[in-house]
Amino acid sequence: MKTGTMSRSRGVATGLTYFFLIVGSLLMIFPFVWMILTSLKSLAESVQVPPTIFPAKIVWSNFGEALTSLPFVNLYANTIIMVLVRVICAIVFSSMAGYAFAKLNFKGKNVLFGLVLVQMMMPSQIFVIPQYQMLAKVGLTESIFALIFPGLVSAFGTFFLRQAYMGIPNEIGEAARLDGCNQWQTFTKVMLPLTGNSVAALTIFTAVFAYADLMWPLVVNTDINLMTLSSGLATLKGQFMTNYPVLMAGSLFAMIPMLILYLIFQRQFIEGIALTGGK
């Protein structure tokens, strides 16, 4: 009798759990669905009152129009180059520094690590004007290098990978030294390969945030051919004020590369970001 009511109440609880999860999921997905549906409608149909849910006639021309109004090939190339170089810099420099801070003894270690920690606490906007002025002084605004510039080193990456190296027992490094590895070999051949998960997490973290960044690319490159997907999209908004089908098509173009990566590496994305954020 007692177990009966318990299992019934558990059944109700499970039912409610699914109910809320599904309702929430629908709310999360709906904007994306609406984006796709709108991108397939004609301008006239998109402003019909009352609105249609599914396009009465599927129109592909919005995608063509988005492609001709923005140089998407350049935007993709610029975004990919910016993300790739930032990721490589973050991994290479942060691995080196993270290893040194975690495993080596040297004069000035605490002060220098303090510089890393303090930088992490400051919002990036405080650097924007002088960073822009530095580039302007040497004539490097309006370039792909300008997009990469603020991401050449990563204080967060250094901190994060230092944590990873701290987790590796000292004995492993000592054993490598006894086997005749020098400092550099101990780092590259023995220690670095042990931080794979953290490096993957840092890669994803760096890529997602570089890709989402809007203020810096908007400020530093005003030439449409040198913009990123984000800043290019902001420009498209100005051109097609109210032509939402074209804007939705453009937004889809801008979202697709990261979405595809997300679908493939879904678990790594989520766990990577949980790992970087939780620290």
Partner: peptide, 30 residues
């Protein structure tokens, strides 16, 4: 130990120089 220290300085150099140029100089400038 001296050798270790030289390696360490070499390995933190890119990050520290980068932070000084990209963040600490701009911080003072702002």
């Amino acid at each position: 130990a001296r050798k270790e220290q030289h390696w360490a300085w070499l390995m933190v150099a890119p990050t520290i120089i980068g932070l000084l140029v990209l963040n600490y100089y701009p911080l003072i400038q702002t």
